[in-house]
Design a protein around this nucleic acid. Structure first.
Length: 266
DNA sequence: ATGGTTGCTTAGCAA
């Protein structure tokens, strides 16, 4: 089972490149972030024609998340399991086969100490609480998305320049670590411990050609799922050329072949 | 530290 997570930065703007990529790559599950469209605008028909069921949660102009799957997703949730009225569409969860999948778009945070930063830290506490609830104590759990945090210095092209900055601050890294402390493993690092692998490059200052990026997108897996992770990577090719998202897709492959469809129907 | 680029929506915000 191949899972891909991609901050697409406007699905409508990217659809003509996304569909051929989808046809070529044939992932079992795709988690999208920054779809930047309302649910009415979501290109469900085109994606259904491409062979994917869609669970989506959007809003006008900003944010927006989705899960695409070759098998119909069940038990869709679009909140962080709490009563908070949050106008930002940043989370969707669904069960596919026996894998509970989250597609999350963490707040950017703007600048350390800003109101947006406080919201980011609060949001992480809410995500952690949500993942800890019984509803999500699935056998297999994957938390995928744009975390807007570079977890370690290896995830940063110039750790000295970025020290303490947004996406690299101690508070954010602590929030990410607390998430992992629930028992989640960063699947890329199971297979690629080396520095210099990035998933986001700023549109400005020729950041991509200079490879001045950060790894802020990830696929986190609980212990039972991580134990079956056979490969992981970042599809840097999709950041090349014009009219691309500023993020590349990140992916992980899992060997879960012993699950039959019939087992899943129940 | 600043500004640069892109997307959405139409001057300015968010990233």
């Amino acid at each position: 089972m191949k899972i891909v997570s991609w901050n697409i930065n406007s699905l409508r703007k990217r659809i003509d490149r996304f569909l051929p990529w989808l046809a070529e790559t044939q992932p079992d599950i795709v988690c999208l972030q920054e779809t930047k469209c309302t649910d009415e605008q979501f290109p469900e028909l085109a994606l259904r024609a491409a062979g994917y069921y869609c669970a989506f949660h959007g809003q006008k102009s900003y944010n927006g998340v989705a899960i695409l799957s070759k098998i119909e997703p069940r038990d869709v949730r679009t909140t962080l399991c709490d009563e908070v009225i949050d106008p930002h569409a940043r989370v969707i969860a669904a069960t596919i086969r026996n894998v509970r999948v989250f597609s999350v778009y963490a707040p950017n945070g703007q600048a350390v100490g800003s109101p947006a930063y406080d919201y980011k830290i609060q949001w992480y506490a809410r995500l952690r609480a949500c993942l800890g609830k019984n509803e999500n104590s699935a056998t297999y759990l994957a938390v995928c998305g744009d975390f807007n945090i570079a977890p370690r210095d290896e995830d940063v092209h110039d750790p000295v320049l970025w020290r303490g900055a947004i996406m690299c601050s101690e508070g954010e890294r602590a929030a990410f670590q607390q998430l992992c402390d629930l028992g989640l493993t960063d699947t890329l690092r199971l297979h690629h411990p080396e520095a210099g692998l990035f998933s986001w490059w700023d549109y400005r200052m020729l950041a991509f050609p200079k490879n001045r990026g950060l790894r802020i997108d990830a696929i986190l897996a609980n212990a039972s799922l991580a134990a079956n992770c056979t490969a992981a990577g970042i599809d840097r090719e999709m950041r090349k050329g014009k009219e691309t998202s500023d993020h590349a897709p990140v992916w992980a492959e899992f060997e879960l072949d012993n699950i039959s469809e019939l087992d899943v129907e129940r």
